[in-house]
Design a protein around this nucleic acid. Structure first.
Lengths: 157, 157
DNA sequence: TTTGCCTTCATACTTTAGTATGATTTTTAA
DNA sequence: TTAAAAATCATACTAAAGTATGAAGGCAAA
C-alpha cells in the first residue's frame, strides 16, 4: 500500500540528499584546506560519518513515519430516501404514457379507481381503460402486481 | 493536517535518534582513544557533522513524505436493497399475528386472495378473514393501502 | 391531410375483493 | 386448566376491480 508514490519520494530524497552531501563535503574540504591541515584519513572519516548518519536519519524518519498513511472513511449514501429518479428508459420502452403513469402512481398510493377518477376529473370507466392498458404493458393481471413491477422498474417511488 | 499524530512520531524519531547518536559518538570516542590520538577538535567536528547531517536527513525525509496522507473513500450503503429489517415494535403494537403478516407479504407481491389461499393451503375465506383483520389493524380499506402502509412501517420489504 | 397514438367515455359482463356474522379448532399464556 | 388469542372455515351479501368491445375527439408526425 502507498508504495508507488513513496518510491519516487524516497528516491528524490536520496538523490537530493546525495547532491547536498557532495556540496557540503566540498565545502568542508575547502574549509579544512584553509584552516586545518589534517591527514586524508580524517576526511574519509568525516565523509563516511556524514553519509552513514544521514542515511540512518532518512531511514529512521521513513520508518517511523510509515504509519503516516491515514485512512479517511468517507460515507457515500447510496440510499434514495427522497431521491427517486424515474427510469425513463423503461418508461419509453414499455410505451407508458404520462396519463397512465399518473394513474399508476395514484394506484400505488392505495387509491381506488373511483378515487383516482375523481382526482383526475375523469370517469371511472376511463380509469379502468387506463388500467387495462397499463396491465397489458406491464404484463400483469392485477393492480397489486402492477405496483410491484412498477416499483422494481423505478417507474414509481 | 495530519499534525497531531506526526508530532509524536517526529519527537520519537528525534529522541531515539539522539540516543542512538550519543551511543555511536561514545563508541567513536572510545575507538579513537584506542587507536588514534587526535586532538579534540576532530571529535567535535565529527560529532557536529553527524548531528547536522542526520538532522538534515530526518528533516528531508519528513518533508518529502508529508503528502503521504491518502484519502480512502469507503462506500457505506445505507440503501435498503436487500437489507430489510422488520419493525417488530410496530408489529406488536398493531397486534399483527405471524399468519397475518405472511398474508400481507404475499399480498404485496401481487398475489390474489385465491393464490395466497393455495400457497398457504387454506381456504379462500380464511384469507378473506385475515385480510379483514389486517385492514382493521392497519386502519385501511383496501389491500393496496395495506401494502403502502405496511411498507412505510417496515412491516414488509 | 391522413395515420397513429393518446385520452376520453360507455355498456355489459365476469371476477375478485371486501364486509358481516357466526362457528370450530388450536395455541398460548395466565 | 381455563380463558384469551389465533387460525380456520362457511354463508351471504355488497363493492370494487377487471375484461371486452366499440367509439369519438384531439394532437402531432409523416
Amino acid at each position: 500500500m502507498a508504495g508507488s508514490t513513496n518510491f519516487l519520494n524516497r528516491n528524490k530524497s536520496v538523490i537530493l540528499y546525495g547532491v547536498f552531501l557532495a556540496i557540503l563535503l566540498f565545502l568542508l574540504k575547502w574549509l579544512e584546506l584553509r584552516f586545518l591541515i589534517i591527514n586524508h584519513a580524517f576526511e574519509i572519516y568525516a565523509g563516511s560519518i556524514a553519509v552513514i548518519f544521514t542515511a540512518l536519519g532518512i531511514w529512521l524518519a521513513l520508518k517511523l513515519t510509515k504509519p503516516k498513511t491515514i485512512l479517511v472513511e468517507k460515507e457515500i449514501f447510496t440510499g434514495q430516501r427522497g431521491a427517486f429518479t424515474l427510469n425513463e428508459k423503461e418508461l419509453s420502452r414499455l410505451n407508458i404514457s404520462k396519463r397512465e403513469l399518473e394513474v399508476l402512481q395514484l394506484m400505488s398510493e392505495g387509491l381506488s379507481n373511483q378515487e383516482i377518477a375523481s382526482k383526475l376529473f375523469v370517469s371511472l370507466n376511463t380509469i379502468k381503460t387506463h388500467n387495462a392498458r397499463l396491465f397489458e404493458k406491464l404484463e400483469v393481471k392485477r393492480r397489486t402486481q402492477a405496483i410491484e413491477t412498477a416499483k422494481k422498474l423505478s417507474l414509481i417511488p
